[in-house]
Amino acid sequence: MSSLRLLCLPGDGIGPEIAGATLRVLAAAAPRLGRSLEVETAEIGFAALAAAGTTIPEAVLARARAADGVILGPVSHNDYPPVAEGGRNPSGVLRRELALFANIRPARTYPGLASPTGRRFDLVIARENLEGFYADRNMAAGGGEFMPEPGIALAMRKITEAGSRRIAEAAFRLAAGRQARRVTAIHKANVMRLSDGLFLEVVREVAARHPEIACEELLVDAAAAHLVREPERFDVLLCTNMFGDILSDLAAELAGGLGLAGSLNHGETNAVAQAQHGSAPGIAGQDRANPVSLILSAAMLLRHLGEAPAAAAIEASVARALAAPESRTGDLGGPLGTAGFTDLLCQLIPEAPQ
C-alpha cells in the first residue's frame, strides 16, 4: 500500500506551536496506521508573504492538491495587507481551490470536564462551505458585498441546488454512522423564502432517499435556543454556511470551548484539517496554546482517509487527558503548557485500546 502523504501548513501566531504538537501526536499514532506516514511542511501566512510576496503561494496550492490531506494551522488573515499586495486568506483560498464543500464540526462534552450547561451531549454540525453570504466564497469574480454609494451596503447570498445536495448527502452519510441516526435541517425559510426554501426543498429530496434516517426542520433561532437549553436533543445539524459557522461556535463553547473543537473541510477528492479557533498572536511563543482543536481535527482527517484505528487512539488519549485537572492545559485550569500536554498525549497513545 502507498504511504499516507500529508502536508502541514503551520500558519501564524500559535499556529507553528500547535501544528508542531499535532505532528508529534501523529508520529505517536503512526504505528496504528495501515501505511507509512510521510509529512511535508510548507509556509503560508506572514512567513510566506515575507519570502514569496503572497500568504499562500501557487506552489503550496499545488502541493495541497497532490497530498492525501492537509493540516492547516490558524492564520491572522485580518491583519494581512490587501489581496492586491499578496494578503489572501489561505483558509478561504484552500476551500475554493480544492472545492472543500463540507465543513464538519463535532461538539461533544468530556467526562470530568465541566460544560456551561451542565448537560452531556455529542453532536456534529455539517456546514455548507462554498456558498451563502460569505463574500469570498459565492462569486467566481468580484465580491458578494458592495457599496453602490456612501451609506448603502448590500450583500448577496448564493444558494444552489447542487451545493445544497452535496452538503445534505454528506450530512445523511454522517448520520448513518452514528447511533441516533437523526438529521436536523437548520433554516430561516419563513423569511428567506427563496434561498432557504430551495435549500429545504433539496434536503427533503435527499431525506426521501434515506428513510432510515430521521429528519426534522428547525428555524435557526429556535435551534440556538434549543442548543443552550437541551443540546443533547441534536445529532447531526445540517446548515448553510453562515448559520453553521455561528451554531458550531455556540456548540463548541457549550462543550467546553473552541480550544477543544475539531474541524474538517472536505470535498470529493481533498480534505483539510483545521483548528476551529484563531491564531491568538497574544500568546504565541509562550507555551500556553491548547493544541487539542488541531489535534482532533487531524484525527478527523485520519478517519476521513480510512485510518480509523489511529484516529480512535488519538481521540481516546485526548479524552483521557482531559478527564483530570492535573493533565489539562492552562486555559482549562490545568498546569500544563503546549509541550507538556503534547508529551502526555504521546505517552497515552500507545496505551489506547486497540
Rank of each mutant, 00 (worst) to 15 (best):
R5I: 01
G20L: 12
T22E: 02
L23I: 15
R24M: 08
L26A: 02
A27L: 07
A30Q: 08
A30F: 02
P31N: 01
L33K: 01
G34N: 10
R35P: 06
A48W: 03
A52R: 14
A52I: 03
T54L: 06
T54P: 05
I56N: 01
P57R: 08
A62N: 04
R63W: 00
R63N: 02
A67F: 11
D68I: 05
L72K: 09
S76A: 10
G87D: 08
N89A: 05
S91L: 15
G92T: 12
G92L: 13
V93C: 09
L94C: 09
R95W: 08
R95K: 09
R96T: 12
E97Y: 06
E97Q: 14
L98K: 12
L100D: 10
F101Q: 03
F101K: 01
A102M: 13
A102F: 09
I104H: 02
I104E: 06
T109M: 03
T109R: 09
P111Y: 07
A114P: 04
P116Y: 14
P116I: 10
L123W: 01
V124I: 13
I125S: 08
I125N: 04
A126S: 12
E131V: 07
D136I: 10
M139W: 14
A140D: 13
A141H: 15
G142L: 05
E149T: 13
P150M: 05
I152H: 14
R157P: 08
R157H: 08
A162E: 15
G163P: 08
S164V: 11
E169F: 02
E169L: 07
A171L: 03
F172R: 11
A180F: 05
A185S: 15
V191D: 02
S195W: 10
D196K: 14
G197T: 09
L200D: 08
E201T: 15
E201G: 15
A208R: 11
E212A: 06
A214N: 05
L219K: 13
L219C: 12
L227D: 03
V228N: 07
P231G: 03
E232I: 11
E232Y: 14
F234C: 09
L237S: 03
F243L: 09
D245N: 08
D245W: 02
I246M: 07
D249Q: 00
A252W: 02
G257R: 07
H266W: 06
Q274G: 02
Q274E: 15
A275T: 12
P281H: 13
A289N: 03
P291K: 07
S293R: 01
S293V: 01
L296V: 14
L296Y: 06
L301M: 10
H304F: 05
L305Y: 01
A308I: 00
A310H: 00
A312C: 06
E315W: 00
A316L: 00
S317I: 04
A319G: 04
A319H: 01
A319I: 00
L322D: 08
L322F: 11
A324C: 15
P325W: 14
P325M: 14
S327T: 13
G333M: 09
G333W: 08
G333L: 12
P335Y: 04
F341M: 11
F341Y: 14
D343S: 12
I349W: 01
P350H: 04
A352W: 00
A352T: 00
Q354Y: 06
Q354N: 08
